[in-house]
Amino acid sequence: MKFGVLILEGPYQHESSDSAYHFTKAALEKGHEVLRVFFYQDGVINSTKLMEPQADDRHIQRQWSELQEKYDLDYVVCVAAAKRRGINDDVIGPGFKIGGLGMLTEVAIEADRVVQFGA
């Protein structure tokens, strides 16, 4: 099945990004396609490489970046939401790209199922 994933919450404050990560990973491991992970609203903050969690905690941006590299995934960080929150090309980690909100509509059209995390 062709999945899309939508993330609306930022890192650490809520579990949504972690849940979305585990869901995406499990879907890929089961052989499903994940056409795009779209980061919207505070979800855009998951992309910043400036986060520095303590050493014994997970690094949310890095774990997303590593998953992207392993499966060559498409991560889109909404430009309008990103600008509002100080996220730009200078701060996003590897594997993320900033793109238009229309790319969420595109995945809603193309994916069999877009699963939303947070709101």
């Binding site: 869901f23 499990a26 199922r113 699963v115 939303q116 947070g118």
Partner: peptide, 19 residues
């Protein structure tokens, strides 16, 4: 269920996220 089971459910059903 585990995350793999979550994926199965999402494959079988459309999903609504009540947050």
């Amino acid at each position: 269920i585990d995350y793999a089971g979550f994926v199965d459910l999402a494959e079988q059903n459309k999903t609504a996220s009540w947050s």
